[in-house]
Design a protein around this nucleic acid. Structure first.
Length: 264
DNA sequence: ATGGTGGGTAGCCCA
């Protein structure tokens, strides 16, 4: 049994107390973090090691973005893709289970894309679509059991957002983004593990804005975080859970962790 | 229709 978690942590250094609580309570074998917001030399390796997470692959950057994968089972850095083609730290891939064996675990932080859903008026939106386009070309070349997890910054389904109608022109749920994500899915035949276990039209959110007095009252969430697997690997995913309670912990991230259990 | 909050960092950027 191998359990894999993903969590956009919005500064790993500031959030170490809740990361520690999550690791102690849930004890995933591997945790993929996005938005660590630090450079590699600033990453809290020792704190993770004390918790039993001795293995890590960190792709950091000063101040912004940054991803890290930590494990209490052996893992080794396998790749770093720059799908935005601008040097931002938004991906790290690791190999679990030994060289040439086991699975590749890709940890990705897709750019948010700014406020205006038009690449002519907003370069960041174009960069987001181009990022997903480069991911799609890469996905076409995958030849090993692979899982890709992280903050995709796109909520594709109607039941992935609190109001499909009101969010159609809001970046993260626009048809052009959803279509780009669908092309990425089709390029490899990815299985959306989250939606295999929490079947539409059931509500499924992983993010609630900080710009709300009480995130629970209006429940204006979106499913921006995903765990997708190669078709054969997906058959071995036996459970999937969403840790909504973490949104209520002290000094929370605006995202919550997701966990998938594999019987490998 | 608008602005609301949070993190990193050092005069705003990003989400």
């Amino acid at each position: 049994m191998v359990t894999i978690a993903t969590w956009n942590i919005n500064s790993v250094r500031l959030r170490m107390p809740i990361v520690e609580r999550f690791l102690k309570e849930r004890a995933p074998d591997v945790l993929c973090l996005q938005e660590i917001k630090c450079q590699e030399h600033q990453f809290p390796y020792e704190a993770f090691a004390r918790l039993g997470y001795e293995y890590s692959a960190v792709h950091g950057q000063k101040g912004y973005h940054g991803v890290a994968t930590v494990g209490r089972i052996p893992l080794a850095e396998f790749s770093r893709h720059d799908w935005q083609d601008n040097g931002e730290a938004r991906h790290v891939g690791v190999e679990i289970g030994g060289p040439g064996k086991g699975m590749i675990l890709e940890n990705v932080y897709v750019p948010a894309g700014g406020d205006i859903p038009d690449r002519e008026q907003n370069a960041k939106f174009g960069q987001k679509l181009d990022f997903v386009g480069r991911m799609t070309r890469w996905a076409d070349t995958i030849d090993r059991p692979t899982m890709i997890v992280g903050d995709f910054n796109i909520a594709p389904l109607e039941s992935d957002v609190w109001s499909h109608k009101q969010l159609l022109k809001v970046v993260s749920h626009t048809p052009v983004e959803v279509e780009a994500l669908q092309r990425f899915m089709d390029a490899h035949g990815w299985v959306d593990i989250g939606r295999d276990h929490i079947v539409p039209p059931e509500r499924y959110y992983s993010w609630w804005s900080y710009r709300s007095k009480d995130w629970k009252v209006n429940d204006r969430g979106r499913r921006l975080d995903h765990m997708w697997a190669s078709p054969e690997l997906a058959k071995q995913a036996i459970a999937h859970s969403v840790y909504e309670e973490c949104r209520d912990w002290e000094k929370p991230s605006d995202h919550i962790p997701l966990v998938t259990e594999f019987d490998l």
